[in-house]
Design a protein around this nucleic acid. Structure first.
Lengths: 165, 165
DNA sequence: GTCAGGTGCTTCGAATCTGAAGCACATGAC
DNA sequence: GTCATGTGCTTCAGATTCGAAGCACCTGAC
């Protein structure tokens, strides 16, 4: 406690730094693989993966996507534009809400994900899980999943309340 | 295993996604606090903190800083420039190696860190450790520290080998 | 010495990211 | 209906990021 006034104990500090470092390094590694294997950025991969795996229809509204991925709305507009230009997703006005835009993954998008996934898993396995047992992985998941839920529930994520006018 | 070809099992997938999500959300929260409390970006905070806490002299070479923080060299040059302009850091040619630049934290830099740290810890505690027991934090640290070491040792981090000429 | 190749940092240009502001539609009060 | 307010998305300007190329110095072979 001598050299810090953060109010965190030693174990918490270790955990915090390790977590952020691992996530940063892992993102780097993954980003490289995705670029090489399928010309995708990490965000683009997340978006496609979410559309491909996380929903039965392969579509989702922009806001839900932005909230699912940790991302700003304007950034999502930008990336959705890139993905659309690449033919991996399509955008259409939402049926129930004329303001909304529904993003759908295309067949090309699914193919791209399929192309990239095996290598992706390989990188994760080598970089993240190499030093971890199967039980460790389970423990890690059990530890972090509640944290994610806690974080997601607390503050109003990407949709910050508008300022007064 | 039906819906993915990543080669990762269910627990690994959960752990991977939870890890990345938690890190992303946490970074967001921390970034906001740092901006409000001390007008620092996350990277800037990392750099200052590393200088303030991690070394006896309060100085370090650019490359070591870049490797310590997960960061590109050119990005570090940019941020070091900002920090220097803000008076939080000073740069001087290295003594032993005329190519090298030694970055040192200034008194103002130390003050800034001290200003920001308590609130920083508060955010971490609320967002990250709220759902975790003391034992959990320890477990997390023990799980992730080896992973970080593994990742740092394997690939040639920020200093990618130069291409042939 | 001197030369070739390696390393430390910066510069440059292009890509990406963000918050704030803007536009269009939705919703509810009246 | 009309109005005030809220929400979904995009646009915009500016900040940040990265990799590649450039420059200066260092190191070892000769």
């Amino acid at each position: 406690m001598a050299t810090n006034s953060s109010g965190l104990d030693a174990a918490q500090l270790r955990a915090y730094f390790a977590l952020m470092d691992v996530a940063g390094l892992l993102k780097h590694g993954v980003e490289q693989q995705l670029r090489d294997a399928g010309d995708l950025s990490y965000v683009q991969f997340q978006l496609l993966a979410r559309l491909a795996l996380n929903s039965t229809t392969g579509s989702e509204r922009m806001t839900d996507l932005a909230d699912g991925v940790v991302y700003s709305r304007s950034g999502l507009t930008y990336q959705a534009g890139l993905l659309e230009k690449a033919g991996l997703v399509s955008r259409a006005p939402s049926v129930e809400d004329d303001r909304g835009v529904t993003v759908s993954i295309t067949d090309a998008g699914r193919e791209r994900i399929a192309t990239v996934l095996p290598g992706h898993g390989e990188v994760i396995r080598q970089q993240l899980f190499e030093p971890l047992s199967a039980a460790d992985a389970e423990t890690l998941a059990d530890l972090l999943s509640p944290v994610r839920d806690h974080m997601r529930s607390a503050p109003p994520r990407s949709a910050a309340p508008r300022k007064k006018r």
